[in-house]
Nucleic acid binder design. Structure first.
Lengths: 216, 216, 216, 216
DNA sequence: GATGAATGAGGGTTCATTCAT
DNA sequence: TATGAATGAACCCTCATTCAT
């Protein structure tokens, strides 16, 4: 009872290996982000990718491996993307840039972003490998912020909490997109709305830290 | 097949119906919050509650019904708990109180709080009934905040986004408790840490809005 | 999760043992006639009788025993009721009376009548005890009919088949009541329709046998 | 858990899809006709077909779908098979042919025929779709018969009842095959017995209607 | 590369029945 | 008598995966 080829690429005839892998990746991201690792089914992933279960298992090793790969890529991307800027920038600019990057990613790839959340909710065991680097990165950020505070550029505050709060404010737009759209009665895909959110967010955070506006 | 009576209440012999229902509720909250509706298994819930699957189904109607009940109770609790205070309070006090209530709940019942998140992540279909009230409540809050802005008590800002951001900042401590504990290298259960977080959060938000400190 | 007392006798307070047994009997007849022995559930029977499953098992020994009792009573009733009349009656009268009795029973107690059918459909193993008597009774009827044939009162025909056909024609109104009602676009409960069916049936059979009309 | 490959096709190794589907169909017909939809178990069907339950579910979608398919095919077959003949045939020939067709089917495929009966006994809900056509077909027959009555070719009788009675007389040989074999003390498979039954039946009905013998 | 088939465990749920109270 | 609880098997069905072709 095959149930494939109904979604994405039905009837498209022969696909290249790369295209197929891409389709699987996207399907997996959707399913995992909706139902978490335990709740996602390979059947559903296969279907979304336009494959049969048999075909899917030809391309992947394991449900676990597929998940691990996606999660790993996400963590790596995030690590590179969310590093604080160079020392010669102003605190306001660094923070504004961080928020912009983080928010942009959440809005552009909400499903992928949510996978981190479902993983954490389900215990985060599969993140074990990534914690050391994440903590190190946070420590670097903390050091930088505390430097600003010592230099009097920032009011006295808990740097670690500030980082977490910026994270929370931006990640919100991925995890709670549904809620946000209900409350705003609008789709988060709109360019103008996205800019508005960014502006409000940056202003809010900078003022919350006692910082002047960013340079642009 | 017998895999019960190993966890919570092992060997306790004979429990009252109320105690059993309580055990089931707690077990269900844990499992649902970890794996979402689809990923949670009645087997695991039963085991956690110290019951067999058959026994569990003596007490509940359905997996779906069990979930619905928990979700429903949560939504009702939240609606009552997170209403803004009376008009005769100052904006700072109202906001500070809201943050306090929301944060306290997230820290005291993180698993229950997370159920809302998993539900939303998996599409939020089972929240359909609750949206109208939630939107109405948000509208009331928006109206209040916009009143403050008009009265010059608050800087000009998007009231709706402010509400969502406060929500994000507090909910964070439930959803990302694991991440937070890693970053802080401390348990969120500590009284003193909780107070510290609250203080930082309130200060951050009030300042972000351009409001004076709350009265206590 | 009790599910009793919703149907028949809800809230009626205390019932006598006899009334309860009666309720169980009726419930069982309904369920068994609809779903057969295998398909009927004690849960459904209990519910229909306004009892819990526990209560039901207080009154009955077994699902099997309950079924056996009902089936046994039916067979006994039928054996007495469908015996051919005395020798001094005319063939036409005997046949007309038999058809009348059989039809009346089918129309008055269709559910009970159908239990025989479901039993037969499912293999008839539980009828083993009753076959000898049934065959004997048939033999008596056959002998009688063949007597009539020999006496020239009836055209030459297969007596055994005639008996089976009369059986089929009357049992039809129990087994296929639903079909009949669809085709007639009327309820079989109507007195006038019942008389009409009886008249048509008797005429049809008597003429089919080459017999004169019955005396009344 | 392995209980397969013991019945029908044991050891046959590798079967084609078509053969397997055929085996499933036959197994399902047997089980459904014996126990009805509710009482039949997929386990039993699988076993009869020489499959495991898992294998069975590879080939079918659902218990319900399997049942629906069989029932649907039956209804379609019947509709085509039991239409009355052309107008230029004599009433006797048309009736004789109808009885022949219906009886032949009942004797050749008693289990399949019985599925209609169990369905009706259990409420007939799954026949909803088929009633309109069935009623229409009956109406066509009624019109034809009433034409004969008006033309004086047939004695005055209730055409609708006549149709139902012919139906009852023939269906009997499927539903009550077990009873019939007991009473006749012979298997209904015998060619000669089948012909004898047909002859008796046709004579009985034609005479019951006051019609002359059929032309062959 | 791709497909049909198989596999065994486990999914949620209901079954008939029994046991204490 | 009645009731709440328990029991273990069986219900229909889906799971992730493997194996031949």
């Amino acid at each position: 009872m095959k149930k494939a080829a109904t979604d994405a690429v039905a009837g498209k005839a022969r696909q290249s290996r790369i295209e197929t892998m891409e389709a699987i990746r996207n399907a997996a991201i959707s399913e995992f982000s909706q139902h978490g690792f335990a709740g996602a089914s390979t059947q559903a992933i296969a279907q979304r990718a336009g494959l049969t279960k048999s075909q899917l298992h030809y391309y992947i090793e394991d449900k676990e491996a597929l998940y691990a790969q996606i999660l790993g890529e996400l963590m790596q991307t995030w690590e590179h993307l969310f590093e604080f800027g160079e020392e010669n920038q102003s605190p306001s600019d660094i923070i504004a840039l961080y928020i912009q990057q983080k928010l942009r990613f959440a809005l552009k790839q909400p499903e992928l972003s949510r996978i981190f959340t479902t993983e954490l909710l389900s215990g985060g065991h599969r993140l074990a490998t990534f914690w050391p680097d994440a903590v190190a990165q946070t420590n670097r950020k903390v050091a930088m912020i505390e430097g600003w505070v010592k230099a009097g550029e920032l009011r006295a505050l808990d740097a670690r909490l500030l980082i977490m709060h910026m994270w929370a404010l931006t990640q919100y737009y991925a995890d709670y997109a549904i809620q946000a759209e209900r409350m705003l009665d609008a789709s988060l895909r709109g360019r103008k709305l996205q800019q508005h959110i960014l502006d409000e967010l940056v202003t809010f955070v900078l003022q919350g830290c006692g910082l002047p506006p960013a340079s642009r």
